[in-house]
Nucleic acid binder design. Structure first.
Length: 170
DNA sequence: ACCCCGATCGTA
DNA sequence: ACGATCGGGGTT
């Protein structure tokens, strides 16, 4: 029996690397669809050159500066959306990119692919996912999954950091 | 107003 | 290896 209690603000309001690792194996619910998170990446603060907030607050990135537990969805390459969850204390811009989700039928191994499957668009930016019954990640008491840490995908700066986490059994 | 380029993906 | 496709953000 799945526990469908949303992860709390306290879960997201922590160091981003911890949140990124612990999201592996947790179940995301999105307006009737659901799946297990299998891959994440961390984007941490203004000293991380790959982080959208690296050059300060803009209209797009202001959500990353807000309190933890909100969605950050943006359009990339004019065609695909990427889903993130905001982490850390208010004022510190950071988020976890959701890169892979396993459903009953499929494994969506890419941020654009999983957004396409769930129907996640710009409209789902800045949603409070710790106070929503439709869009949240459940605290399913799953044990911490073994994972591999690798460089992040598709970036030109910050390749030295091993901030991509892939569930080993996915 | 203009220009560059990106946290991607599918096809070649 | 490359093209599709377009908004964000920096520059003129």
């Amino acid at each position: 029996m799945n526990n469908r209690t949303p992860l709390t603000q306290e879960f997201y309001n922590r160091p981003t690397l911890e949140v990124a690792k612990e999201l592996l194996g947790k179940e995301m619910f999105f307006y009737g669809k659901q799946g297990i998170i299998t891959e994440t990446e961390a984007y941490i603060g203004q000293d991380d050159p790959a982080c959208h907030a690296a050059r300060g607050k803009t209209k797009r990135t202001e959500i990353m500066f807000g309190s933890a537990g909100f969605s950050y969805v943006y359009l990339i390459y004019g065609m695909y959306y990427c889903l993130n969850f905001v982490t850390e204390e208010e004022g510190f811009p950071a988020a976890v990119l959701i890169r892979g989700i396993k459903t009953d039928e499929n494994h969506f191994d890419g941020p654009g692919k999983l957004c396409r499957h769930f129907g996640i668009t710009k409209e789902h930016n800045a949603i409070d996912i710790v106070n929503s019954n439709d869009f949240f990640v459940s605290d399913n008491n799953s044990p911490a999954l073994p994972f591999k840490a690798t460089p992040r995908i598709g970036i030109s700066q910050g390749k030295d950091k091993l901030w991509r986490f892939v569930a080993s059994n996915s």
